[in-house]
Design a protein around this nucleic acid. Structure first.
Lengths: 252, 252
DNA sequence: ATTATTATTATCAAATTTGATCAAAAGTAA
DNA sequence: TTACTTTTGATCAAATTTGATAATAATAAT
């Protein structure tokens, strides 16, 4: 029984039960507890569940806008670092696209002092973050709302994005690999990402290191499309080589 | 029972009750009071609740969009009544326009159980209110955000609204008089109101009694445009006469 | 104000969980 | 096959979590 298989089993248990213990899973799958812990850690990084002491629990449907900012979460601090770094790429007077990922959202608090600024986004939390900042003009894409992502998706939204032009686009990605380029969880998200990429001079991809080398469900663009990658860990020599000379910003 | 599990339980209690005591929780969960205190401290740091001496109380809603809900305010309770009444005009399966006024926003909490429902709005608080309700599809107008109104305005938004059709439109108004009809604070708002009115079969105007007989800066439509007025006080005979036989819904 | 009562924080000890390291097992490619 | 990489499991020290106790702080009562 390999990781993928165990992952499925674990998620299946979690589908029925609210929480579970490491030993319990280990017994059920007849796998050592150490391995289960490793699995749970990986799955927690993918935000498929929440790690607790002694086990794991269902990932709560993150309802409020503030769900993104989770101080206790390790992945969240990593995202904050990336966000802080990405924010340094923005200059007063810029027009920027911001997509609806949590990593991109992490930029917001660092952008508030960069004024004037024009922000075009499909994310409600992003719009909310700048709502009361006088020096930042927010333009939100219209269309059908996706409740779980708290963002607007679909043709209408893509049309909206395309009717604007920005200096810089900042997008998150669910997967990034040399072989398959950028990949996303869903077609909808990929569409928005491409629209932003197509209407901006520069494209910055924000990607936390756990996603590098991984592929998600839908691949939507080659690595060549991006101006630079913003991430949180120094890349290995071979990873860098794969990026074909793309600039890489790394948080130290 | 680990921290995460207790956290959930505690939040669940706080969801129903306004405040609670440490010992009470300790007994309920069969956990030592010391541990509960530690939990409460952590949760207070996450701003999930407010620590009090001897217990904890509900945290103020952290959404940036809940600014309208102001219980202490007298005008707010009046608006709630109007909202409740207006909500009775909505039937499952309807497509409705909701504008960005606080009175219209007051409808939202009463609409949540009417499903399925399609809501088209230019208001971010309205969109946020329905975000997590699976049976309610939200469509938000795109365009420039107006920070003070927490809504989208302008040509782009008007175009957006016009591209949809609804059974019923619910709009607020800043002024309503027999002589000058409906009036608004700004041209932007008036534009949205008219767009909604023009694309809906029925137009319901929500207006608290203090605004009846008053005019605001910009008049944008005659009274004849509305299907019915929803308000909070019985109107005088002459007021009724002025309304030229329009239906009036009044909260008793 | 002063005392009594109750809540909070600090410190410690016991129990458990975890992460690191390394060895064994299972795949993989030549 | 062999050599090499990856995954898994075992062991144990380090870190967390929890509850008990004692000292301190805050509130209520007199």
């Amino acid at each position: 029984m390999g990781y993928q298989e165990r992952k499925k089993s674990i998620l299946k248990i979690l589908d029925k039960r609210e929480n579970m213990e490491v030993q319990e899973i280990a017994d059920a799958l007849d796998i050592s507890a150490v391995t289960i812990r490793r699995d749970l850690q990986l799955m927690a990084e993918e935000e498929l569940l929440i790690r607790t002491h002694g086990g794991a629990m269902k990932a709560p449907p993150k309802h409020p806008f503030t769900a993104f900012t989770d101080k206790a979460n390790v992945a969240a601090t990593r995202k904050k670092h990336i966000g802080q770094l990405a924010a340094t790429l923005v200059k007063p007077g810029d027009t920027i696209f911001l997509d609806c990922g949590s990593t991109v959202f992490a930029m917001c608090s660092y952008l508030k002092d960069i004024q004037p600024l024009r922000v075009v986004t499909n994310s409600l939390p992003v719009a909310a973050a700048f709502m009361d900042i006088p020096g930042i003009q927010v333009n939100i894409a219209g269309g059908e709302m996706d409740g779980s992502r708290k963002a607007v998706h679909g043709t209408k939204a893509i049309e909206h994005i395309k009717s604007y032009h920005a200096d810089k686009a900042f997008i998150g990605t669910d997967g990034l690999s040399v072989q398959h380029g950028l990949s996303a969880h869903s077609e909808k998200e990929a569409g928005i990402s491409m629209a932003m990429a197509g209407s901006a001079n520069k494209l910055y991809v924000l990607c936390d290191s756990s996603k590098i080398g991984k592929d998600s469900y839908m691949k939507y663009a080659p690595l060549s499309i991006m101006t630079a990658l913003v991430t949180d860990k120094e890349l290995s020599a071979e990873q860098l080589e794969g990026l074909q000379g793309k600039k890489v910003k790394v948080m130290k």
